[in-house]
Design a protein around this nucleic acid. Structure first.
Lengths: 262, 262
DNA sequence: CGAAGGAGTTCCACTATTCGGAACTGTGTT
DNA sequence: AACACAGTTCCGAATAGTGGAACTCCTTCG
C-alpha cells in the first residue's frame, strides 16, 4: 500500500493541478521562494518539479528573479485584465454601483464568492484613489466580510453546508464570528433581513451593509463600506433599502440582458 | 509522416501548454465562446479538449456561463492580484512615478515588456480623466507605444532582432511605424536621445515621452502621457529630463535595494 | 410528430508524457 | 582546497493524457 496519508484530497486535475499548485504556493508565500523552498512545500520529486517550473517559466506564468527566487508572471496579469474587462456581472453591475455610491457617498464594493472566499470584482472609492488591481482581485474570507456573508446567505443549503465545512475560522477582531453555529445563526438573520451587516468583524474601524446577488452558478454581493464612526447602526440602517434595491436591480438586469455587448 | 504543417512552432511545454492555449483562446475571443467554438480554434480532438476544459473549470481558471459559453475564471484575478501587489519593480518604481506625476501633472505609466507587447504595471492618472485605454494589466503592442519603444531600445541587439521578427505591424494611426526599417531607425534615435516619443502612433490625440528601464532579464519603461494638444513638442521636450531622471532613479533603487520588503 | 442534425459527454485501448531516482555541475562557504 | 548545498540533466518505467468512436440530449426542420 503506497497510499500515503494525502492530507487534503486533491481534485483530480492531473498535471494541470500540479502546475497550479505550484502557482498557488508561490502566490501564498509571503517571502520570495527559491527552488528548494518550493520543493519543500510542493511534495514532488526534484526532477519533476524542475520540469514543471521550467514549463511555467516558458509560459510566462512564473518569472525567475535575478536572485533565483520565483514570482508570478506578467502573463497572469494579462489574462486577468481580460477576465475583468469582459466580466458580465461587473459590466452589468457597474452603473448600479455608481448610483449606490452617489446615493450614499461611501465606498461601494462588488464581490463574488469563490470557494470560502470573496473576490472583489469592482469598487468605487469615496475619494478618487482609483488603484485598479490594488483592491480589485483581492481575496478575503467570506465568513467575516459583508459581501461574503451576503453571498453565503444566497447559497442553496446543500452548497452552504459543504462550504462551511471547509471554513477555517480565524480571529481578526473581537467581533469576528468564530464558529459554525454563530455563522449559521447570523446567516439566518441575514436571510430574514435581506442584508448583511459587518460591524468591525474583519477589520477594526470598518463597517458595512451588504446585499446578496443570486447567480445561476454561485453567489455574489454588493456592499456600502466605510469607517464605523461614521457608519453607525442608524446610518447603516438607512442604507439598507438602497443597497437592497441596487442588488435587485442588478439581478433584474442579469436576468434580462444576458448578452449586453457594450 | 504525421507531421502536419504546424503553423507556429509551439514552445515545448507539453500538457500545460495546451491548457494555457485554451485560456488564451478564450481570452483573445471578442465574443463568448461555446465548446464547439473553442474546438474549432484549438486544434485538438473533441475528447481531449473536453477533459482539458473540465480540468480548467475544476481549477477555477475557466467558468461556464449559464448560456454554455466559457469565460476566464476568478482564480486568475486572485493570482494576478498577488502578482501585482508583490511585484518588486512596481513597488520600487511607485514613489518615483508619484514624483514624476507631481512634476508634470500628467498621467504616468509603468510598463514591462513581455514578448512583443507591453503590459502596463502601474499608472497614476492626471485628473479624474475618463477611463483611458490603459488599464493596469492591459497589453499593447510595443512597437507603437512610448513605453514599448523605450523598453525595446533597452534590449540587447540579439534579443531585439529575435523579437522584431515576431512583430506583426498593424495600422493604428497615420503615424504608426509600419515596418522593421522604420522601427530600427526610430530605436536608434531613441537610444541616442535616451527617451522615446510617441506622437499619436497608437491612438490619435495621445502623445508621450518615455524612458527605458534596463532589467536583468528584460526591459521596462515609464512614460508621461497626455492629450497631444497639450503635450506639444516643446512641452514633451521639457519633460525629457525629469522622465530620464526618474527612470535612472528607479534603476538605482533596483540595483541597490534588492529586497525592499515594505 | 418524427427524423435529422448538431452540441456536448463518455468510454477505452494506445502511446506519448510525465515521473522520479540518481548522477552531474556549478556556486558559495569554512 | 575541500565541502556542502542549490540547481540542472538524464533516462528507463509507468502513469496520465490522447483521440477516435459511440452515445445521449437538445434543437431544428420536413
Amino acid at each position: 500500500m503506497k497510499t500515503a496519508p494525502k492530507p487534503a484530497a486533491r481534485a483530480e486535475t492531473g498535471t494541470l493541478g500540479k502546475a497550479v499548485d505550484v502557482l498557488d504556493i508561490v502566490a501564498r508565500a509571503d517571502t520570495p521562494l527559491r527552488f528548494t523552498d518550493i520543493l519543500r512545500l510542493a511534495d514532488q520529486p526534484r526532477g519533476t518539479l524542475h520540469r514543471q517550473i521550467a514549463n511555467l517559466l516558458e509560459e510566462g506564468l512564473l518569472v525567475l528573479n535575478s536572485d533565483n527566487s520565483y514570482g508570478l508572471g506578467m502573463r497572469l496579469m494579462q489574462l486577468a485584465a481580460k477576465a475583468w474587462s469582459r466580466n458580465d456581472l461587473r459590466l452589468i453591475a457597474a452603473p448600479h454601483l455608481q448610483k449606490l455610491h452617489e446615493a450614499t457617498g461611501e465606498t461601494v464594493h462588488l464581490g463574488v464568492l469563490r470557494g470560502v472566499d470573496v473576490v472583489y470584482l469592482d469598487k468605487i472609492e469615496s475619494r478618487q484613489s482609483v488603484r485598479m488591481v490594488s483592491q480589485i482581485g483581492n481575496t478575503a474570507p467570506a465568513y467575516c466580510t459583508g459581501v461574503g456573508k451576503a453571498a453565503l446567505s444566497a447559497l442553496p443549503e446543500a452548497e452552504l453546508d459543504a462550504l462551511v465545512k471547509q471554513i477555517r475560522f480565524r480571529f481578526y477582531t473581537s467581533q469576528t464570528l468564530m464558529d459554525k453555529m454563530a455563522l449559521y445563526r447570523h446567516l439566518k438573520e441575514v436571510r430574514e433581513r435581506g442584508v448583511a451587516f459587518d460591524r468591525q468583524e474583519h477589520e477594526v474601524g470598518i463597517a458595512c451593509v451588504a446585499a446578496p446577488i443570486h447567480l445561476s452558478n454561485g453567489a455574489a454581493g454588493i456592499s456600502v463600506t466605510g469607517p464605523s464612526y461614521r457608519l453607525t447602526w442608524q446610518v447603516l440602517a438607512s442604507y439598507v433599502e438602497v443597497t437592497r434595491k441596487a442588488a435587485a436591480a442588478i439581478m433584474d438586469d442579469l436576468a434580462a440582458g444576458l448578452a449586453p455587448r457594450s
